[in-house]
Amino acid sequence: MDTYKLILNGKTLKGETTTEAVDAATAEKVFKHYANEHGVHGHWTYDPETKTFTSTE
């Protein structure tokens, strides 16, 4: 398992979190669920070199 990072740049919520996942697709599902639960619906990007997802509203 690898550690993946999420950076949230929402209108009402900003911050970072991490998750352990078997691959990027699994981490993306976890992070999108997390963002949706916190009302963040933004544009998603992923940097495979740093294993970092960013959601920007």
Rank of each mutant, 00 (worst) to 15 (best):
M1R: 10
M1V: 12
D2G: 09
D2W: 12
D2P: 06
D2R: 09
D2K: 13
T3P: 03
T3E: 08
T3M: 09
T3V: 13
Y4C: 04
Y4M: 01
Y4Q: 02
Y4A: 02
Y4D: 02
Y4H: 02
K5T: 14
K5P: 01
K5E: 03
K5N: 06
K5I: 11
K5S: 05
L6F: 08
L6G: 02
I7M: 05
I7P: 01
I7S: 03
I7E: 04
L8F: 11
L8K: 00
L8W: 11
L8Q: 02
N9R: 09
N9I: 15
N9Q: 09
G10T: 09
G10Q: 03
G10E: 03
G10I: 05
K11Q: 13
K11M: 14
K11T: 14
K11G: 09
K11F: 14
T12W: 14
T12L: 12
T12K: 09
T12N: 14
T12A: 10
T12I: 11
L13V: 14
L13G: 08
L13C: 15
L13P: 04
L13R: 05
K14A: 08
K14P: 04
K14H: 12
K14F: 10
K14G: 06
K14R: 12
G15A: 15
G15E: 13
G15K: 14
G15L: 15
E16I: 09
E16V: 12
E16A: 08
E16Q: 10
E16N: 06
E16K: 06
E16D: 05
T17V: 15
T17Y: 15
T17S: 09
T18Q: 09
T18V: 09
T18F: 14
T18H: 09
T18P: 01
T18S: 11
T18D: 04
T19Y: 13
T19M: 12
T19W: 07
T19E: 03
E20W: 12
E20G: 04
E20K: 13
A21K: 02
V22P: 15
V22A: 14
V22Q: 12
V22T: 11
V22L: 12
V22K: 13
D23R: 01
D23Q: 03
D23F: 02
D23Y: 02
A24F: 12
A24K: 12
A25W: 09
A25E: 13
A25P: 08
A25G: 08
A25Q: 11
A25N: 08
A25K: 10
T26A: 14
T26V: 07
T26M: 11
T26G: 08
T26Y: 07
T26F: 07
A27S: 01
A27P: 01
A27E: 00
E28T: 03
E28C: 14
E28D: 04
E28I: 07
E28K: 07
E28R: 05
E28V: 05
K29P: 02
K29Q: 12
K29N: 09
K29Y: 07
K29H: 11
V30W: 14
V30R: 09
V30M: 10
V30A: 09
V30H: 12
V30S: 06
V30T: 11
V30L: 11
F31K: 00
F31Y: 01
F31C: 02
K32W: 10
K32P: 01
K32V: 08
K32S: 05
H33G: 08
H33M: 14
H33R: 14
H33N: 12
H33Y: 09
H33T: 12
H33I: 14
H33L: 14
H33S: 12
Y34L: 06
Y34A: 02
Y34Q: 03
Y34K: 02
A35D: 01
A35E: 07
A35L: 12
A35F: 03
A35K: 01
A35M: 09
A35V: 08
N36H: 15
N36F: 14
N36V: 12
N36A: 15
N36D: 13
E37S: 12
E37W: 07
E37V: 13
E37L: 14
E37M: 14
E37N: 09
E37A: 13
E37R: 09
H38W: 10
H38L: 14
H38G: 04
H38P: 01
H38I: 11
G39K: 06
G39H: 07
G39T: 03
G39L: 05
G39V: 03
G39D: 07
V40A: 05
V40E: 05
V40D: 04
V40S: 04
H41K: 11
H41E: 11
H41V: 12
H41P: 04
H41R: 09
H41I: 11
H41Q: 11
G42S: 05
G42T: 04
G42V: 04
G42R: 03
G42Q: 03
W44E: 01
W44Y: 03
W44T: 03
W44S: 01
T45G: 06
T45S: 12
T45N: 08
T45W: 07
T45M: 08
Y46T: 00
Y46H: 00
Y46A: 00
Y46M: 00
D47T: 05
D47G: 01
D47N: 11
P48T: 07
P48G: 07
E49N: 11
E49L: 13
E49K: 12
E49P: 08
E49A: 13
E49R: 09
E49V: 11
E49G: 11
E49I: 10
E49D: 14
T50I: 06
T50M: 06
T50W: 05
K51I: 01
K51F: 08
K51Q: 05
K51D: 01
K51T: 03
K51R: 13
T52C: 05
T52D: 00
T52S: 04
T52E: 04
T52V: 07
T52M: 03
F53M: 01
F53D: 00
F53N: 00
F53Q: 00
F53K: 00
T54Q: 06
T54I: 07
T54G: 03
T54C: 08
T54S: 07
S55A: 15
S55C: 15
S55N: 13
T56Y: 10
T56H: 07
T56E: 10
T56M: 07
E57H: 05
E57V: 06
E57W: 06
E57F: 05
